[in-house]
Design a protein around this nucleic acid. Structure first.
Lengths: 197, 197
DNA sequence: TTGACGAGTGACCTTTCGATCACTATACTA
DNA sequence: TAGTATAGTGATCGAAAGGTCACTCGTCAA
């Protein structure tokens, strides 16, 4: 039960930090959103900064569990169309899952202030995706689905535009449908360019 | 002289907002950085929000002057290598010019809070670049320098990865040199893929 | 049954924030 | 020269911020 409230505080913190940033969030509102009074929160965390660090711990752990290990990799597609399908599944998840969206927003807002946020932001937005698709594209090249080329360069060229459109969805959610269509069109164009048919 | 101080306040605001965000900035520090006392600032702007709006006005005007009009377009390169050269010139400017860097940071930090910042962020980070290179690539295709393809799609595929690395420079300035090298490699790879030689 | 513990409350503290105002010094104008 | 406008000062204000503390109440173990 104590643990439950601790978790609920972190969830509320994620929500408020993602909307108003760390500096723009106050403990009173955060507590109120949980039906608590300010001092109740301080029974579980000794300061605002402690909450922030615990939240970051959680985000880092989550990232490590879900994207950090090579064995968690999505399977290498068997057809060019399989790449589109897999991409769209990942995109739909990452754009619609509230926790993931809020995590990206927090990292965006705090990347210049907190070193760990900075580091995680680079992983989330850039290197993590590139590494993941480097492996996938290497596999696709071995299967003869992709033109032989520098897989890392292709992964970067593939993921960065998609990442840009995901950021657009975070910033202007009403453009989400358009952005998703654009991602699919881009994915097909990528295959038309680098595929082996 | 009044005007001078007004401008200096905006410059200081850009600096502080880009480092600490709007909510994380206080007027005392801002004033002190100008050798003023807080109430001196209020002689020129009636509130913190007024400063913010004036700064946004300025950023929007600056963007309109420098990137908004088609006649401001860089010339269409005459060779594939010309694209690399032009790209690297633009990148070097945008990554090293302090005002431009701070503008991007401010837009990054306030994009979820302020509608005008949201809109300008999308232009800065996405649509503006795409539009600009759509025209350039259309011209290059007419000159026979680029494979005939959807110029808008190519522009997006070209600018989004570059934009991602520019964001990396903003976030982790110590990686700037690497990022610039990576941009150049990407630019050459792009030409190797879509060029007509 | 009792005693200890832990979650949550409400009053309170200190600091900091944005903002105001009476005032001064300077520079320009009639 | 007298008068006025203006940039800047320093004291002050009320609100809001983060944080503390004595206390209550329910749960559970001895």
């Amino acid at each position: 039960m104590a643990n439950d409230t601790k978790e609920r505080i972190l969830a509320a913190a994620l929500e408020m930090f993602s909307q108003n940033g760390y500096a723009g969030t106050n403990i009173r509102e955060l507590s109120a959103s949980l039906g608590l009074v300010k001092s109740g929160v301080y029974k579980h965390y000794e300061s605002k900064e402690t909450i922030w660090n615990a939240l970051l711990d959680q985000m880092i752990a989550y990232y490590g569990e879900h994207f950090g290990s090579p064995e968690r990799l999505p399977p290498v597609p068997d057809t060019p169309e399989g790449l589109v399908t897999m991409t769209m599944q990942m995109v739909n998840f990452t754009v619609h899952d509230e926790k993931v969206v809020m995590t990206r927003k927090v990292l965006t807002l705090e990347q210049f202030r907190d070193d760990r946020a900075r580091e995680l932001a680079t992983k989330h937005f850039l290197t993590g995706l590139t590494e993941m698709f480097t492996r996938i594209f290497t596999g696709m090249m071995e299967k003869g689905l992709l033109r032989k080329d520098d897989p890392e360069m292709l992964a970067f060229a593939y993921t960065a535009p998609i990442s840009a459109l995901i950021h657009l969805c975070d910033r202007e959610p009403e453009k989400t449908e358009d952005a998703i269509r654009q991602i699919e069109a881009f994915s097909r164009h990528f295959i038309a360019t680098y595929g082996m048919n």
